[in-house]
Design a binder for these strands. Structure first.
Lengths: 218, 218
DNA sequence: TGTTGCTGGTTTGTTGACGATACTACCAAC
DNA sequence: GTTGGTAGTATCGTCAACAAACCAGCAACA
């Protein structure tokens, strides 16, 4: 009765299990086990794994199977850098395209961000900060950059959790994102992207610092 | 007797056929046909297609099969923009890391570029220009950005051929890349990436112009 | 004790067959 | 002449079984 290919299902289910840490890094993914768990065929798991491999979430070795890929700290930093470059591009588009309604939404989310900050809830600041950035993604309407950003984010969800917990990070996020939103509201693409560049520069610093706290395994 | 999975083969064979235009845009890719042509199983073609879909080179519709994806002009421009953002990031790394040997290589390729320009061979200017940029990729050692750039380039090989034929484009390429290489040689990351940004800005313009020449099907 | 070589079990890679779906051409009715 | 329905074909999605390769454990030997 499957009107459309189920592979999408298995893919996203596995995807979620990996990025949420349900399947730990370096853990093997035996095709048969997950086929039974998901109540589907091995071939579907197989295809899902192939896609996940291209996402950089798993590695597949011939005749040895798939396992969750271990992301090295250096790689995480590099990924942050790429994300920064893309979002900088994207914000300049957003500044040119933002409607009044868009600006209102951004303001609104920003207020929630302040609230979270004042409540001393860094985790929530991180979540809302991400929400703002995703809103900017939407506003920019840059499908291609969006595609890559989506792909990228999967790889650093876990790192992000750590860096947002660094002392002072929450304040910095609030301040810098405010600046970004301000410039976007003014329609100043140049300044907006410069502000975003700075946001990402300091996000990168925070990550590097977080990574040095101890040799954390991603 | 295949010691390792052949899927890599089928993938790259199909890949080449698509980017070189052997399989035309919108042309159907019937699994069975190519399985016979490559003398392999349908499952391999299937997996190769799944990967190509994520590369954005083919689209797969349930029960309708795969076909080479048609890249719209808007998409090509967006892709150029993303490429520009990534290479700008990457050049600043290259400026920091370039050794004397690297600089010598860059100079050498640059000379070949001048030669091609003076011979009035825009196609060759394009090819060599690309060679320089790939050299910069290597120097930057930014694996993550590189991964994405590789992925991206597959989608715009055909567009590139067109934009390099625009009048004056060859000269602009030579001039702007010289500037980039100069700054990289000086180790000035800031200026180098700014120069690269300009290069890509004008590459984008050239593409837009080329696209408007006539409604070319990619 | 340390190393080598075998052996059984486990997991993957491959294959062919079957059922499901969408497209197409034909025919009848209006 | 056009529209609507229907059968046939081509193609895809799914599945289960087989073959090849890897791995752990044990035994034999230096």
């Amino acid at each position: 009765m499957p009107a459309k290919p189920k592979v999408e299902d298995e893919y996203s289910r596995l995807y979620k299990m990996i990025v949420t840490g349900k399947i730990m890094p370096n853990e093997r993914i035996v095709e048969m086990d997950y086929a039974q768990m998901f109540n589907c065929n091995r071939a579907n798991i197989r295809r899902a794994l192939a896609r996940l491999e291209q996402d950089g979430l798993v590695v597949i070795e011939p005749f040895k199977g798939a396992r969750v890929r271990l992301v090295t700290p250096e790689e995480a930093v590099e990924t942050y850098e790429v994300r920064g470059a893309l979002e900088t591009l994207l914000v300049s588009q957003a500044a040119k395209l933002a409607t009044e309604a868009d600006k209102a939404i951004l303001r609104e989310i920003l207020n929630k961000l302040y609230e979270a900050r004042d409540n001393g809830d860094p985790m929530r600041v991180g979540t809302i900060g991400r929400q703002i950035r995703e809103e900017l993604w939407r506003i920019s309407s840059h499908k291609t950059a969006l595609k890559f950003l989506t792909q990228i984010n999967s790889q650093l969800i876990r790192s992000s959790y750590r860096s947002v917990m660094m002392p002072g990070r929450a304040d910095a996020i609030a301040q810098q994102l405010t600046e970004v939103v301000d410039h976007v509201s003014d329609g100043d693409a140049e300044k907006a992207s410069e502000a975003m560049r700075q946001y990402h520069a300091s996000a990168r610093e925070a990550l590097v610092a977080a990574l040095q706290v101890k040799d954390y395994v991603f």
